[in-house]
């Protein structure tokens, strides 16, 4: 599938002190592809996600976005980050700004759009995630699911080439998970390139082009969801699936 690679990781290694959290990671994500990363906690999947926009630095290896190697800290890195949106487990909406201002801020500061233009774009995106009526509220006044949808709108406002999702539904009440997954499903259908770290197996099955299974800092399996869920190859994946699919 990956004929037109957008995100490429080659022989990536990362340590937290002595802990070798990413071991010789090789991963290519093609344009328009949805890759879901699953695995037990502590397997390095969130770290993997965060290395792609250099929120985590790596010790060795190469990461390239759209053919360009990830720049070091500075202006180049900021420009690259604007092209790669990120959605966090804990939403991280700017607590002192309204929903509308959250979505508009980076458009004003990074994309240098005029306020009218930015606010209009923000309202369109809020409409798209079903939150147009909440534009003037503060993040703390919204439910978790609503906050996460605002966070997705905020990432989309930069017109990114790809979106990274770091466990976007893990901090949500069960009844709010679906409203976030629906927005993500829609993005996937529209052809957005996405790397999604999640425990939502339903989403992996229905929206992913590929499932990457990680364990102990390594990519153990990298296959289509159909293959992975019906016939996992490794014992580690079999064990993992048997535990989570039981209940």
């Amino acid at each position: 599938m990956a004929v037109d690679p957008l995100i490429e990781l080659r022989d990536v290694n990362k340590y937290f002190g002595k802990l070798h959290v990413l071991q010789d990671i090789n991963l290519t994500v093609g344009r328009g592809e949805v890759v879901v990363v699953i695995g037990p906690s502590g397997s390095g999947k969130s770290t993997l996600c965060r290395t792609i926009n250099r929120l985590e630095t790596i010790e060795s290896g190469h990461i390239a976005i759209d053919g360009k190697p990830l720049p070091a800290e500075g202006k180049g890195l900021a420009e690259l980050r604007a092209e790669v949106g990120m959605v966090f487990q804990s939403f991280n909406l700017f607590a002192h700004k309204t929903v509308l201002a959250n979505v508009s801020l980076a458009q004003l500061k990074v994309r240098k759009r005029k306020r009218d233009e930015a606010d209009q774009r923000s309202r369109e995106l809020l409409e798209r995630v079903g939150l147009a009526s909440q534009a003037d509220k503060l993040p703390a006044q919204l439910s978790g699911g609503q906050q996460q949808r605002v966070a997705i709108a905020r990432a989309l406002a930069m017109d990114p080439k790809a979106l990274l999702f770091d466990e976007p539904t893990s901090a949500l009440d069960p009844e709010m998970i679906n409203e976030v997954l629906e927005v993500m499903q829609q993005l996937a259908r529209e052809g957005m390139t996405m790397v999604v770290v999640t425990h939502e197996m339903g989403f992996a099955r229905s929206a992913a082009n590929r499932v990457v299974f990680m364990s102990d800092g390594r990519i153990v399996e990298d296959r289509t969801p159909e293959d992975f869920f019906t016939a996992p190859e490794s014992d580690r994946a079999k064990d993992f699936l048997s535990k989570i699919l039981k209940h």
Partner: peptide
């Protein structure tokens, strides 16, 4: 919270922009 700064940086805001628009207004309080 560190997540506030991370969110700002992940949107492509520079260190100065992050500090002035996101971190300091909240620290000020």
């Amino acid at each position: 919270p560190t997540g506030q700064g991370e969110a700002a940086r992940s949107l492509g805001m520079s260190f100065g922009q992050t500090l002035n628009n996101v971190v300091l207004p909240q620290a000020f309080r």
